[in-house]
């Protein structure tokens, strides 16, 4: 296996094998992952990262296939990260999204990577964000992240993507119900796929009605589009809207959002670093078991232990 700096250089040069290896390194949380991210970080921020979420059967992968084709027609390069769930029982996963895009797998301007959640919650994997950065640093113009699409709380995508497309298909049951639960707030564009189905127009109207109730003071009014992923109908219009949203984000008043995102990322990174350094230390000292026992015996609560450990580490009240 090549050295991490070689991989980083490879990524920046757009070498496909290096990109693949870099993502694996991040996914596996290898000791060198941090070094890798640090090396590529200055070269990120050029790609437009699109998140695509929606319930199972709404046609996410098929739509992405058509979106890629449209971008390719425009001469853009595309990276895709398709996330599927890890089984909580076996730790294994079946990754089958790319089958819909498989014809594009030999296009050198396209890079598709399947990713298992590895029990991370929120519809993506822990490594998704940094994997998207790898594709960004490797020079992809557009990076599309397909979420698991299983639940209603897939809001983690907001931490990864700049433009979030929420997909529905008529006839899947309580689709509108799904919008109410959180996703409403994060959606930048709504798409009703399988537009050839009978109740597509009704779904569009339902969403629009709900938007009127919810989005009064927002500067960006999320549009509601119709597509037919099988034929590609409506996809050029979707790309136009995505592009509009990108331009909107570039305007100054939306800096706030980028700032919030940076802050969230920093907070999360600190949490993780601090937590893992303390836990590792306890393990090294063989004290982890001791503290766990205290909790089990109800002698000390977890928060008090945490405070004590922080005091010990930083030598002052936090």
């Amino acid at each position: 296996m090549p050295k991490i700096q070689e991989i980083a250089r490879g990524v920046l040069a757009g070498d496909r094998r290096s990109i693949a290896r870099a993502i694996t390194t991040i996914e596996n949380n290898s000791p060198k992952a941090q070094e890798l991210i640090a090396s590529i970080f200055p070269h990120t921020g050029n790609a437009h990262i699109i998140g695509l979420t929606g319930p199972p059967g709404s046609g996410k992968s098929t739509l992405i296939d058509k979106i890629i084709r449209e971008y390719r027609r425009k001469g853009k390069t595309v990276g895709v990260i398709a996330v599927d769930p890890t089984s909580p029982f076996t730790g294994g996963a079946f990754l089958g999204d790319r089958i819909r895009m498989q014809e594009l797998s030999t296009d050198q301007g396209v890079f598709i990577r399947s990713m298992a959640t590895r029990n991370y919650l929120g519809g993506i994997a822990k490594a998704t964000k940094n994997a998207a950065k790898v594709l960004d640093a490797a020079g992809k113009d557009v990076v599309i992240v397909e979420t698991v699409g299983a639940g209603q709380s897939e809001v983690e995508i907001i931490k990864v993507a700049q433009t979030i497309v929420v997909l529905f298909a008529p006839g899947l049951g309580d689709e509108i119900q799904a919008i109410k639960a959180g996703i409403m707030e994060i959606a930048d564009i709504f798409v009703v796929n399988k537009a050839d189905r009978a109740n597509a127009d009704k779904a569009v109207m339902d969403i629009q009605a709900m938007l009127q109730l919810n989005n009064k003071e927002k500067k960006w009014k999320p549009p509601v589009l119709k597509t037919a992923a099988l034929t590609g109908e409506g996809v050029p219009q979707l790309i136009e809207r995505i592009e509009e949203h990108r331009l909107f984000l570039e305007k100054k008043f939306e800096r706030k959002r980028s700032r919030e995102k940076a802050e969230a990322e920093l907070v999360e990174a600190i949490k993780e670093k601090v937590a893992s350094s303390i836990i590792e230390e306890l393990k090294r000292e063989g004290k982890l078991e001791e503290f766990l026992q205290k909790i089990l015996e109800k002698k000390m609560d977890p928060a008090s232990i945490a405070e004590k450990l922080l005091n010990r580490k930083f030598g002052k009240q936090v």
């Binding site: 098929t62 079946f94 089958g96 089958i99 819909r100 099988l230 034929t231």
Partner: peptide, 10 residues
Amino acid sequence: YGEYKELIVI
């Protein structure tokens, strides 16, 4: 007509 892509169910 287009070509069909199979729906894979494992």
